[in-house]
Design a binder for these strands. Structure first.
Length: 679
DNA sequence: AGTGTGGTTATTTTT
DNA sequence: TAACCACACT
């Protein structure tokens, strides 16, 4: 990524083009962030558009942060005032907050994460008597389907009419109940943060005009990752004026399985006839040999816009392919190779990245790295907010802000143990339902003693009183963090963590996590530029959308080898990259072969290759442990797609007589044929 | 309400 | 292989 402020001709053209809709096809490493940030500065300084009328949208908090930082270097504080650079979701959240009166939400609404939504669905299914055994699978399906429907802007009533199977009908019904539930809790899920604003702008002309007027110029990053709802939102915001720049790369679309529609790039051409397309093909990252490999691989995919990366960095080192005996051997060779390379070339650990398809592949690497005492950083895996202790503390806070948040209530009512079991909760739920109360308000209701044993009723009253007390004290406190700490302590939660922890180390991590949550709340309060955003309510709500772990990790800018999945590697670059597990059924992944979505796997391969600046090493294993069983592997088809004369093979090239299951072999053969036919 | 056992099952996961 | 979950037992 070029940090210099000098733009090349194409980049300059993209910056200056403001008279209509623009699509920038930004190849990997072509300096797209520079174009976006420079363009924002250009719009303010040269075009005289005030910053508060410019909106830039990204997908990750990290991207938004980086963009803000870089714009900050180009514009003065005064010039940048009111500029909106945020993720789609944060933008949606802000819109919702400002347009509450047009929405079925009250001002203290909660944002539920995937975990909360799962609980709600589980609850609904039980009530619906949809059995318990296969429920887990069904819930996963339901979550996926509901999210798909939402992202396609299909409301529950419409969902019924698009059903193809009996199961779909069930799920549509579940979707309807789920939506009703969220509204009753005064809560939204992540998808709602996009979908609700979109629908509002669709249906309400007045609000739409207001926002179109406010967003005079829109910039969208990673456009290839937008889903239908997001694209619709973009269209509604830019209106007929079409004053926007979309930056994207269809070759780096690797989130289709999550609803992203790379076809949105082609749609743009149809929806805006005067769309200007500028290609950024000069790559500032990699050697030309690496780019040749990348171009060759991606050349096997169909393209709407043709694009070929080039660089003036010279040929560079040859690309190595190492065939290993098995996964242990692979990890060992990669790590040893890395150490040797580092010592011989005087590099740092952080110059190296090991990329893989699935998180499970990190395990062997970790063992190996630990054995060799090499510092490493594992990204991905469990997110900060998925951790139980964080979710628990957050639930206390959510309940304070929104007493209707039953999801939060259920999470903490018996954490720490308050002798409130499932029987009590069922009765409480029934009582709440009959009287249309939330679980928390129901808990403080005096009539409760008529339906519950005395002890249970007292426990619930006590809990409700506890929350009420702290609600009163917290909401008008200028320094809420000490109060929060006091509340969590008095709730007995800290003691609970101490007792619960299996090891002293685990106890420490958990307590540290809680501490860093406090710190983050404090930071958010300090950093809020708006008085309106300083209050604890809006801080807590924002917190759900942030991944603090990411921030934490970034702050400790230490020298460590990077271990990441190919997905997590997108947008990053490293001087030396190892891509491991280049085998059929792994990359491309088994399920993708079956689903015939090889193209997306190929893009994943492309993303991996283009992360490397100077050195690229690919490895594969002849055998791999698969659920305790050693399995014979076939080299990935993508290896055949590489320019063979740029490669250097190490280890045994040909595999020995494999004992492949004949059925599998037949399937393999079919898949290969299909791939050939597609070309 | 909390512990233990056996059976099942393995992608990717920006918010 | 190991992690996770449901269910049964104490």
């Amino acid at each position: 990524m070029s940090t210099g402020s000098q733009l090349n001709d194409k980049q300059y053209e993209a910056m200056k083009y403001v008279q209509g809709p623009l699509l920038v096809l930004a190849g990997a490493g072509s300096g797209k962030t520079s174009v976006i940030t420079q363009k924002i500065a250009y719009l303010v300084k040269q075009c005289g558009i005030p910053a508060y009328r410019i909106t830039a949208m990204t997908f990750t908090n990290k991207a938004a942060r980086e963009m803000k930082e870089r714009v900050g270097k180009l514009l003065s504080r005064e010039e940048a005032k009111g500029l909106s650079v945020s993720t789609f979701h944060t933008f949606g959240l802000n819109l919702l907050r400002l347009e509450l009166k047009h929405l079925p939400l009250k001002n203290n609404f909660s944002i539920l994460d995937a975990d909360d939504c799962k609980r709600i669905l589980m609850d609904l299914m039980q009530r619906d008597n949809l059995s318990g055994a296969e429920s887990k699978e069904l819930i996963a399906k339901a979550m996926k389907k509901i999210s798909d429907w939402k992202n396609d802007l299909i409301i529950p009533e419409q969902a019924h009419s698009v059903c193809e199977t009996v199961e779909d009908v069930q799920l549509a019904h579940l979707y309807q109940l789920y939506e009703r539930n969220l509204r009753a809790y005064n809560a939204v899920d992540f998808d709602d943060l996009i979908v609700m604003p979109t629908r509002l702008l669709q249906e309400n002309a007045e609000v739409r005009e207001k926002w179109q007027n406010r967003v005079r110029y829109l910039l969208v990053d990673e456009y290839q990752d937008t889903n239908t709802a997001q694209y619709t939102l973009v269209k509604l915001l830019v209106g007929v004026m079409g004053q926007f720049t979309a930056v994207g790369d269809d070759d780096q679309s690797i989130y289709a399985w999550r609803g992203a529609k790379p076809e949105n790039m082609a749609l743009l051409k149809e929806d805006f006839h005067n769309l200007n397309v500028i290609k950024l093909e000069q790559n500032y990252r990699s050697t030309s040999r690496i780019l040749k490999a990348a171009n060759a691989v991606i050349g096997n995919n169909p393209h709407i816009f043709d694009k070929k990366l080039w660089s003036d960095k010279g040929h560079g080192e040859t690309i190595r392919i190492i065939t290993c005996l098995n996964d242990d051997d692979e990890a060992e060779r990669v790590v040893k190779d890395l150490i040797t390379h580092k010592l011989m070339n005087g590099k740092s650990w952080k110059d190296y990245a090991i990329l893989y398809r699935g998180n499970f592949q990190a395990r062997v690497l970790e063992t190996q790295l630990r054995q060799m005492q090499i510092p490493y950083k594992l990204s991905g895996g469990q997110s900060f907010f998925a951790r139980a202790e964080i979710k628990d503390v957050m639930s206390y806070l959510r309940l304070i802000i929104n007493p209707e948040d039953d999801s939060a209530f259920l999470r903490i009512i018996n954490t720490p143990k308050r002798a409130i079991g499932p029987v009590t909760l069922e009765k409480l739920g029934l009582f709440a339902q009959e009287n249309t109360l939330s679980l928390l308000t129901a808990s403080s209701d005096q009539r409760l003693s008529m339906v519950l044993p005395k002890k249970a009723a007292t426990q619930l009253h006590e809990f409700a009183d506890f929350i009420a007390t702290f609600t009163r004290e917290l909401l008008d406190d200028d320094e809420p963090v000490p109060k929060v700490r006091q509340m969590i302590n008095e709730a007995g939660y800290i003691d609970y963590v101490r007792e619960q922890a299996a090891t002293p180390a685990q106890e420490k991590t958990k307590l540290d996590n809680i501490e860093s949550l406090y710190t983050s709340i404090q930071n958010l309060i300090n950093r809020a530029d708006d008085v309106d955003e300083k209050n604890i309510e809006s801080v807590i709500r924002k917190l759900v959308l942030l991944d603090l772990l990411e921030q934490q990790q970034e702050e400790e800018d230490t020298d460590k080898v990077n271990l990441l999945t190919l997905h997590a590697a997108k947008g990053l670059e490293f001087p030396y990259v190892y891509m491991i597990g280049l085998e059929e059924e792994l990359l491309p992944h088994k399920n993708s072969i079956a689903a015939e979505t090889i193209e997306e796997e190929r893009r994943l391969m492309y993303v991996g290759i283009t992360r490397a600046r100077q050195g690229l090493t690919l490895t594969l294993a002849e055998q791999r442990k698969n659920g305790g069983q050693m399995r014979q592997m076939t080299p990935s088809r993508f290896l055949d797609e590489l320019p063979q004369d740029e490669l250097e093979w190490h280890g045994r090239k040909k595999k020995l007589a494999p004992n492949v299951d004949p059925k599998e072999q037949a399937q393999q053969h079919l898949a290969n044929l299909r791939a050939l036919l597609k070309r």
